[in-house]
Structures are given as C-alpha cells and as structure tokens.
Nucleic acid binder design. Structure first.
Lengths: 151, 151
DNA sequence: GTCGGTGCAAATGCTTTGCATTGAT
DNA sequence: ATCAATGCAAAGCATTTGCACCGAC
C-alpha cells in the first residue's frame, strides 16, 4: 500500500541486475532486460508460464528456456524468490529491497494473499542468533479458511 | 527434546488413520499400515524415495504407486505435512498432534534442522483473526548460514 | 459379487539441457 | 575470433494415472 516495506532503493532493479551479471562475467541481454521488465509489472506473485505469455503477448519474444534460465539468474541475484505451494508449478515474487512477504493461502478458495508481517523478521533473527546463524531469508505460508461456520 | 510439543496423544497414530479411512469408506490395508509404521520410525523429515527404500529393505514390499497414494491420504488425514524446499523432491514430516515445526535450512551446508517456535502460532493466529480467517496450518522455512566471518 | 486397493508400466507436465546458431566485444 | 546467450526440441524426473488382477466383507 505504501512504501514502508521498501528499503531505500536508489537504483532501478535493472541496474542491480546488470551489475550482478557483469560481476560474474555474464551479459545484460535484451531478453534478460525484457524479462525483468515484465516481472516488475506484476503486483505480487507470478508463474513462469504466465510470464512467458505476457512477454509474448506484448511482442517481446523470448523462449521458454530463456525465461527459466533468467528466473534462476534473478533468484541468484536476490531479486526474486521462488515460492513453492505445491509441486505443480513454481511461483515467484520480487523480493529485492523488501522483506519477503508472508503468503496466506486460502484453502477454501485457493486465493493467495501476500502480507507483511514485520514481527516475523525479529522472530526469525532471534531464532538464528540463538543458534549462531545469520539469516539469509525465509518463507512463511499460512493456510487458512474463512472463519464462517461452513466447513 | 521433551514432550511439550505434544498435544495429548491418547491413541496411536494407526488408530487415527484407521478411523479416518473408515469414515470415508476406505480400508486400512496392510500396505497402509506398513507405510505409516515406517514413517513413524523417522525422526524428522523423510522423502518418498527414502521411505520406499526403507520399506523394501525391511521386506515390507509396497509399490511406489501405493506409497504416493498413501502419502496423500496421510496428508489429507492431517497426519503428515508436505514441505517443499525445492522442486526436486517433496519432503514430508509427521505433524499429527504437534504444531508444524519451523525448518532451518543451512544454505552453506544444506543441513535442515526442525525447531519449535511457539510464538509463531500466536503470530499466525493473530494474523488470521485480523482477517476473519481460521488458520489450518502453516509452513515456515528459514534460510541461514553460519555467522562466522567466511562468506 | 461388489468395491476399493495394489502393482506395473505408461503418461504427465514443469523444468532442464544439448546443440547449432547468433551476437557482442 | 571468442565466449556467452538464445531457441528449439528432446530429455529428465518426481509424481500420477489407467488398467487388470486381487482380496475383504
């Protein structure tokens, strides 16, 4: 809703990605740029298939193989995160400059809502600290249904 | 470490499973019993393949198809939970009579540790209550590495 | 006898990969 | 020229499913 989830993003994501690619001797190709652009257009979660469709629908022709390869690069770069609800399909979300969101999966309707749970970060960090670990990230999925009386 | 995570298990798991199966007109077959037994022998997480191996190694011959079908039944019965770290393989854990455990995935070593985080339940329930939802379950995975100075 | 269950083998479907081609420095 | 990236089609692989046979009530 507002910017409270953002952590000072000075530079655009494409710059982050480009820098990262350069650092490992890889190239910031037009295909990779288009894929990142299309991802940014998503509000929340997206899937490889939907991304591929969106790209092709808007004339940015990129092959499936390149989409998958780029998703992996983006994940390595810490720009997106893979979320797995089931084994059918991977879901992805933009995480760069944000804390990963908690996902509420409605078991009755199948809807998925992303919410921020600031306390979770503190909880996570404490759990790690107690064990001498440095947190790198987390994923929380909550399965819930409407509290109405119907089963 | 101790029993504080248990919620009064009066009856053995097989009884729970049998009752559940009967309720839906299904049978508690020897194969299903053996699969549940083998699952109980695990401390924490297990995978379908490892379970199948263990069954066959100990002479309890069950087919792969039956293992997968039974895992699904056990999940529906609320006895086990599926945990997905990646898309290679599903991991399962016994959850009946416990709160699902938080899993700490060591990104440096690949080790996975299951821990109890009681506060998480309260947090989850509050998040759901605020939205008029009833929690059915959750999954929290924390990715972390050793806090030592090495990358 | 009816039904559900099992095992086998084949199918599924997302994701990955091999390979020839293409593009940038 | 060299080295990486792309696209296509083929492969991979955990999981699922169709089907014939089997066993319990």
């Amino acid at each position: 809703m507002n910017g409270q989830n953002s952590i000072e993003i000075i530079e655009p994501l494409c710059a982050v990605f480009r820098r990262r690619l350069k650092a490992e001797g890889a190239k910031y190709t037009p295909e990779r740029a288009q894929i990142l652009d299309a991802i940014i257009e998503y509000d929340g979660l997206f899937e490889a298939e939907s991304l591929l469709e969106k790209l092709n629908r808007s004339g940015r022709n990129v092959s499936k193989a390149t989409v998958y390869r780029t998703l992996k690069l983006l994940e390595d770069a810490g720009i997106i995160q893979t979320v797995l609800f089931d084994r059918d399909q991977s879901h992805y979300q933009l995480v760069y400059g944000k804390q990963p969101q908690t996902l509420i999966v409605r078991v009755d309707t199948g809807e998925i809502e992303a919410v921020d749970v600031p306390e979770l970060i503190a909880l996570r960090d404490r759990i790690c600290r107690q064990r001498g670990l440095t947190p790198e990230g987390h994923r929380l999925q909550i399965f819930a249904k409407s509290a109405k009386k119907d089963a």
